[in-house]
Nucleic acid binder design. Sequence first.
DNA 1: CAGCGACATGACAACGTCGACATATTTTTC
DNA 2: GAAAAATATGTCGACGTTGTCATGTCGCTG
Lengths: 342, 342
Amino acid sequence: MVSIISVAKAAGVSNKTVSRVINGEPYVTEETRERVEKAIRDLGYIPNMAARLIRSSRSNTFGIITDYVSTTPYSVDIVRGIQDWANANGKTILMANTGGSIEREAEVWKMFQSHRIDGVLYVTMYRRTVDPEAGDVQIPTVMINCRSQTNELLPSIEPDDYQGAQDLTRYLLDKGHRKIGYIRLNPILQGAELRLEAFLKTTREFGLTEGDLAIKLGMEGPVGSENNYVFAAATEMLMQKDRPTAIMSGNDEMAIQIYIAALSLGLRIPEDISIVGFDDFRTVSMALKPELTTAALPYYDLGLTGAERLNTLLQGNKSDRPQWVLPCKLIERGSVSPPACS
Amino acid sequence: MVSIISVAKAAGVSNKTVSRVINGEPYVTEETRERVEKAIRDLGYIPNMAARLIRSSRSNTFGIITDYVSTTPYSVDIVRGIQDWANANGKTILMANTGGSIEREAEVWKMFQSHRIDGVLYVTMYRRTVDPEAGDVQIPTVMINCRSQTNELLPSIEPDDYQGAQDLTRYLLDKGHRKIGYIRLNPILQGAELRLEAFLKTTREFGLTEGDLAIKLGMEGPVGSENNYVFAAATEMLMQKDRPTAIMSGNDEMAIQIYIAALSLGLRIPEDISIVGFDDFRTVSMALKPELTTAALPYYDLGLTGAERLNTLLQGNKSDRPQWVLPCKLIERGSVSPPACS
DNA sequence: CAGCGACATGACAACGTCGACATATTTTTC
DNA sequence: GAAAAATATGTCGACGTTGTCATGTCGCTG
């Protein structure tokens, strides 16, 4: 492999001068710089990060540790956000996923340390509280899409499920809906509770009573092997004589089944029944016809902001409040119209 | 940071002996080994990969270079397959995605080289031919889900779209369907052509004529911003008086729209119209009701096999034929039944 | 018991890079 | 025009690890 020394020889300078050129240090004549750069190009020299790291003990590398993220379609955008930030800022990304195993997680931390990683981004597939082994490890860490159960001070970034659900609910109310159904996400998920809470609070503030709402559980059980009641719940909800004019779905994926249930009953969307989702999982929300109105989980931004925050942290700047929350933007598409006869 | 030297001091041996223990080399007394291991535990020593690499010039790291994979839900399983293999075999994964940009791709290759990566896995989101810059780079590379346009000898691994579509077609024929519709994938995608070809050939072999088939284009245009005709195509196909009894969908995602089109026309699935997808994109195929019968793209295996093959390659073993193909398994669910009146 | 081989350990250099410091050259300052 | 400052370049060692070779200690063979 061509090293800094071969370049130095080729350019007729000392290796230190080459080092200066590479790192853009001052005190190099323009002429020397050009000669060195030419030698670099001619020889195809590429700096050896390992050697650099060994000297400077800054790896310029972030580690991403995930549970199932790279496994699942949902939150891949978090990773994309992180990578984009890393590219733009000359950082390298080391990625590992645990598949949920504690032993594996311990291994990953070890692996990260053996690579002398500067910091860690701890990412989970769905929003939840976790208890990372970070406690006994002193690598700076930012939690993305989750927060620590044990250490409240660990910086975290999460989507604002509450605000998203609030916006969606208001949107339906503004459109004139007064009888609204809600098909709940798996209550295991942290987002589920927040979204439901926002829905209940917002409708109540608006003056709706419990009789105006129809709430059903759509899924339950351990993530990955949950029981799915969505279709049945939606069908039942829509067969009531006093059926809701709009249904809020726990997420976009569940909305598929609500669509199918509605259509199977001969209802038209949105004329007879309005539907909104959550997440803006575009493979679904844009594949549905009419396309689904939903609230976008800010996954990409979660990743981007997380990486940026980790960097800030590494530079010694402490942030005021540890737990951040990013808004979910309402995406208006075609699945909502005013109720038929209001 | 605690180094091998501190361990050596603590254990009262030379650093070379510690190195022997770490690497499981012979010629160390059991007693010495234990003393060293204790020191390692006590001090929490973790080997420095960078230093190791600089000596041995084997990084034990694979690079994954992707176009949009980490961006899109579809093929994330490829990455998971690679990672699982890497975990099991003590390799580290460096991941970067180009977002389709050539300049970015060049940067990534450079970055990989600067980390002295052992080999590269070149992964694309959808099956296609590419022209990687690998030509001027001498890092061993395995192509996953794609193949090189220019270099036929570059090892590649792809799903067997042809066989998958053939199996699906036969499945429908075996169920008794004799009038079959096909809604085509974006013809830009390499899989599109193969699937259609398999469909046509298989139906022809079975004795169906052109009049028994209804073929329509579902999508077209550049990936990411294509025109979507699926709903219209399906609706039109199903409104013919001599409508097909089964529809093959270019992929699972498109099947959503076919479901909606069918249901909107008052048709029941599968009693009035059978539907099959392709890909087994489970977020969709299992969310649809009835669940979708489809052919599973072997993404996970693509990744696993790819990593394994790269490793074999690195050990100097050349494989006989460069281009491999992995079967797509038929996944039978509830969206197909025999035609109503045959 | 000299000689040999197997085993156990250590000393030291080298990998590629950069920081600290030294030296040489030019420019500025008074 | 001599001293001081700024600029340009080089020497050398250190980072943490492992490969090479040397050394030392056994036990065994003939």
